[in-house]
Design a protein around this nucleic acid. Structure first.
Lengths: 233, 233
DNA sequence: GGGAACAAAAAGTCAGACTTATATGTCACA
DNA sequence: TGTGACATATAAGTCTGACTTTTTGTTCCC
């Protein structure tokens, strides 16, 4: 389910990008456009476009008479969805997953508070529906169905907050939740306490209780953090 | 102080990017690469590189036989530093400033709590130094000096949190704080209460009091939000 | 009216020549 | 020996023109 992939350019990017984010080239390494073009068997034009995109992600820097320099991780645009996907697919997936979960724990409670103030009637209904879907799939190893509703639930919260910056983190949350179900060990049914919290959160938003919504979300993300500590200490 | 600017490619990007984020072309509008190249008097190769970068920011989408379609704002990579800068320079600066301030109010308290647990001795010293610098410049219209130390202070907090996602928001916070001093009306000296809060926050981090650090930061960002309500209601 | 063949349009790709900036090495001079 | 000016090589940057591929919209036939 890659966003790029289309065209020669996208295929090269999907190989070179992950290599860089995986640390295959130590920071300061110099690549040459011509050599890369040769390696991937594409023309210089295509290779230049790839380098330009990597440069806009701050993964590399292109300088005359020097070449394409790989930048240290501290420079990377770590909020770029492609970079996030590449890093989650790579070796430092655990570290990345932790970073993102901590980010969630900061954002989502505030977003939920705002959602309680701003959510439309339709969004409230969606929320309730998602929560019910979670309940319905919380037993009997129906993990896929549970995940689907869980992701949808958090997306609605983030969107309903009315803050575009929060809304854009929907994909990140989806990635984190999906990762927990698919990549990490998750044989057992979801924690019943978490399910209850989601139902209560939908209630709180519907009743415009911002403080309670924030508190409940804090408990949810707190749980996600603890879960992470158990899985990857 | 533009990151790009270097080269023909950067100059075109710095014109076309802001135009799109300013909403000069309604979503769904179709641009043609050849026409754009003609308009900016550059070759198609350069124009293609520009389009590729805009595409990676999800501002546009390039499709065969159709052209370069402008995407709706909901699709934009609003965390991309360039996009942030372009939007802050444009007409919906107030809305953008509010979004970012809300984001700060979610992130910084959590970051401060983590900083209290993870900050090195050197970072604690830096923090105290910055706080003292703020105090020293808090009276007599020394706004530039105050801003400098304020920005540095928040950068240290975000970095000391140990979370890379938080650390990368240093530039955003710098932009918001700088905007308050330069663009918005800011004739008076900074609020003495805010200065005190920063001094206390440096203390709390030094004493490893995570809960107090978080609470103090929440008060600081709360102040920033109220300030925004006064300036742009 | 519906489906298949066709034509046009725009992006995608390539190859090659030329330009420009700049890191680095050379050499003369102090 | 150190230092500055100058020359040179290098790799990115730019331009041009030709060709390919995909997709859309039309037309024509059943």
């Amino acid at each position: 389910m890659s966003t790029t992939g289309r065209g020669l350019h996208g295929r090269v990017l999907d190989t070179l990008g992950p290599e860089i984010t995986a640390g295959a080239y130590p920071p300061g390494s110099v690549l040459r456009t011509d050599e890369l073009a040769q390696r991937f068997d594409v023309s210089r034009s295509v290779m230049r476009e790839v380098v330009r995109v990597l440069e806009s992600m701050r993964l590399v820097q292109s300088r005359r008479r020097v070449g394409v320099t790989v930048l240290p991780a501290r420079e990377w645009n770590v909020y770029d969805p492609q970079v996030i996907r590449w890093r989650l697919a790579g070796a430092d997936r655990p570290r990345q997953l932790r970073s993102l979960t901590v980010l969630r724990s900061a954002i989502e409670p505030v977003a939920a508070g705002l959602a309680a103030r701003n959510a439309t009637a339709e969004q409230c209904a969606d929320l309730t529906e998602c929560a019910l879907g979670m309940v319905a799939n919380s037993r009997g190893h129906r993990l896929e169905g549970y995940l689907f509703h869980d992701v949808a639930f958090h997306r609605v919260i983030l969107t309903a907050s009315g803050n575009e910056m929060f809304a854009r983190l929907g994909d990140v949350v989806a990635e984190v939740l999906s990762g927990r179900t698919h990549h990490e060990v998750m044989f057992e049914d979801p924690d019943p306490a978490a399910v209850t919290l989601h139902v209560q959160l939908a209630e709180a938003v519907r009743e415009r209780d911002a403080a309670r919504a924030e508190k409940l979300t804090r408990e949810i993300t707190e749980g996600a953090l603890q879960e992470l500590d158990v899985l990857a200490p």
